[in-house]
Amino acid sequence: MNGALPADMTTMAVRELGRLMPMFLWIAPTGQICAAGPTLSKVCGAGLLSGARFFDVFDLTKPSPAATMADLARLTGQRLQVRLRHGARTALRGQIVPLAGQDGLLVNLSFGIAVAEAVRDHRLTDADFATTDLTVELLYLTEAKAAVMEELAALNHRLDTARNAAEARALTDALTGLANRRALAAALARAVDAASRGRRGFALLHLDLDLFKAVNDTLGHAAGDFVLTRVAAVLRAETRKQDTVARVGGDEFVLILPGQVDPAQIDAVARRIIEGLETPLVFEGRPCRISGSIGATASCLYPVPEADRMLNDADTALYASKRRGRGRATIYAPDLRLPEDRRAPEQPGPGAGGSGAG
């Protein structure tokens, strides 16, 4: 505390005033800061306030600029807005009361609505506020509200995650993790709509496993499940992220390949899938070999593509592959005729024949 105290402003009185108004300033007629409340000293830094002039520490922004003590005195009773010139430049609000006997001015400051930021920036606690100040209660309410909002946000996130997981399960085949019939229907509807609007065309492939029944009959359903998961892995490896791969039956799969309408491209994908399926597998020390037959069609073959018609045509091409001896791919054409059935009965054995395209 600097400057001579008036007779009615003892050191004890200043200390007690600081308890009631922890952000007060006593400004001498010369503009020198004679005393300050403990919280304001903490915010500004006691060394900064010691012996300083008011206008060296604070900028007066409202209601009007002031450069002299006379200017400041004329603002008595009005709401002030000031800002620290240094450091965090915290914004403050206050009011001026003139002291009797030409002893200067008493200014009581507060943080206003920026109290939460001030508490954070200056590491204030409830001890830095007067016991009658509602600021502490407001801060507790603010913290409680923030905690409630955080918990609500976390709850909403958990609900969104659970809903998304439930939707994913509803669209996913439980064994293979591929899309199921429901997901396929939605994806096919989108693909047909896009192609009908003149956007990107697509290929539709229907895959049926060959010799899968023999695996189930000789090695059991556990081996069958093992094979199906490996089939799913092959299909993922040979398709792109934007493709749809769905399991639609026990050993039947349907693929949607957006942007693939060239017969050579479709045939190349089908050949790679069949080659991958014919890689020998071993289940619990016993070999199990399968292959696959594929029927395919493309949206560009139709004036207006229709989901049911394309599925039927892909199915027709699939049966053509089956009748030609399995392990083959056939691309549908309007003049496609089913050949004579050359399939041999499925027997447990070393596996399927070589792949080929019809």
Rank of each mutant, 00 (worst) to 15 (best):
L155M: 13
H157T: 12
P22V: 09
L20E: 14
A146F: 09
A28T: 12
T131F: 05
D315M: 07
A264K: 13
E346D: 13
A36L: 06
D208N: 12
G101C: 05
R199I: 06
V192Q: 06
P6A: 14
T218L: 01
K62L: 14
R272C: 02
L72Y: 02
A222L: 07
R247F: 08
L338H: 06
G51K: 02
T161S: 08
L105A: 08
L209S: 09
A67E: 12
A13D: 15
C300N: 13
G249C: 03
D208Q: 10
D133K: 01
A67Y: 06
Q242Y: 08
A170H: 08
D217M: 04
L204W: 11
N164W: 00
W26G: 05
P65N: 00
D56N: 12
C44L: 04
P29M: 13
F226C: 07
T142I: 10
G349N: 03
V227Y: 04
V14N: 14
V248N: 05
A46D: 06
L219A: 05
K322V: 07
D251H: 02
A46G: 01
L209G: 08
T131R: 09
R169M: 12
F212Y: 11
D121Q: 15
A268M: 01
F283L: 01
A187T: 07
L318D: 05
I266P: 04
A183N: 09
Q347H: 12
A66T: 02
D173A: 11
M12L: 15
N108D: 15
L49E: 10
M310A: 07
T11D: 12
A203G: 15
T39N: 04
G292R: 05
F111Q: 04
K42A: 13
D267K: 11
A127G: 00
L219R: 03
V282S: 11
I33L: 11
N108Q: 14
V234H: 03
G354Y: 05
G104V: 03
R197I: 01
A116V: 14
A314I: 07
E284Q: 13
